[in-house]
């Protein structure tokens, strides 16, 4: 029997009790395969596994035997008026069938023009028209994947003047309309607060708790007075504060430690994950005492 078949997958915990995961990066493949390496779940960038075969896909198929997997897309561009690719959706659907992930997510962004894909998460004006476009795309995506997807708020460096919604209201409306969940990236909220003045704590308060399916924690760096969301550092103290606030509002939502640039040894990521797990335990203890 093939070890890659979906039917051989272990029964994973319900998403709400997944705990704290880390991003799957190629330089950690070996360390993750060591016996005794404890990580609650792994999040892979979907596009890195779009090829029909090869080593990366082989490793992902091996890891899914022992870890719940989340597939996180960075390249679909749900809000692109032109250049939206149904072929991309089909490749994602094939990967979802093969991996049977516990979570699937994408971003609230656009990324392509008529003749170019920018491979960057570009900001959408949060208008009725954008909600209509993204809402339809999310509905079709969920039909193609036969499951709910989570949509993530992005870090952005410019803001539109004329919008019909602020970000929490847009995400709430998108979730209510399409049935998708919200992946709330707290570092992105904080980076946007630094660069654009949009208040992060107020956003956490305004997000509808029923829709939140995952939280992202990551680091950023400061360049020329700007906060750059480079996923290249430890989680900032201000973001940990937002995390405590978010846990109180949303409960123990599956949480991811995201790190892409200047990737440290796996132990550093596991230590960040342990810190997040401690936050969850503290909130749960508080809840029992209250």
């Amino acid at each position: 029997m093939s070890t890659n078949s979906a039917s051989a997958a272990p029964r994973h915990a319900a998403p709400q009790t997944l705990g704290v995961g880390i991003g799957l990066r190629a330089s950690h493949y070996a360390a993750l395969s060591m016996p005794g390496c404890r990580v609650d779940w792994l999040e892979a960038h979907s596009e890195n596994y779009f090829g029909p075969g090869g080593y990366d896909l082989h490793v992902l198929c091996a890891l899914r035997e022992h870890h719940p997997i989340s597939l996180h897309g960075v390249g679909l561009g749900l809000g692109s008026v032109h250049g939206y690719s149904e072929a991309h959706v089909a490749r994602l659907a094939a990967l979802v069938r093969r991996i049977d992930p516990v979570l699937v997510s994408e971003h609230l962004s656009w990324g392509a023009g008529a003749h170019t894909t920018f491979n960057e998460l570009l900001p959408l004006p949060l208008t009725h028209a954008a909600l209509h476009l993204v809402g339809e795309r999310v509905e079709r995506l969920q039909d193609a994947l036969k499951r709910r997807v989570l949509i993530e708020n992005i870090a952005q460096y410019v803001r539109y003047r004329d919008e019909d919604y602020d970000e929490p209201a847009f995400l709430n409306a998108l979730a209510a309309r399409s049935g998708c969940g919200i992946l709330l990236d707290l570092n992105n909220l904080y980076v946007n607060q630094c660069n654009l003045g949009t208040p992060a704590a107020a956003a956490v308060d305004a997000i509808d708790a029923r829709h939140v399916g995952e939280i992202h924690l990551a680091g950023h760096r400061r360049v020329d007075g700007l906060a750059i969301d480079d996923h290249g550092a430890a989680v900032d103290d201000a973001v940990w504060d937002l995390y405590a606030q978010a846990l109180r509002r949303f409960g123990p939502v599956p949480t991811l430690i995201e790190w892409d640039n200047d990737l440290p040894p796996l132990d550093t990521l596991l230590a960040e994950a342990a810190r997040a797990r401690l936050c969850i335990e503290r909130i749960e203890a508080d809840a029992i005492l209250a």
């Binding site: 491979n119 570009l122 460096y157 410019v158 803001r159 539109y160 003047r161 700007l226 750059i228």
Partner: peptide, 25 residues
């Protein structure tokens, strides 16, 4: 006109996006 900020500020922010795109490529 559609974005918040002065022309100089916006030019810098779009330079950042342009840099990200070409860096990724």
């Amino acid at each position: 006109q559609a974005l918040v900020g002065s022309d100089a500020q916006l030019a810098a922010r779009l330079r950042l996006y342009r840099g990200n795109v070409f860096a990724a490529w």
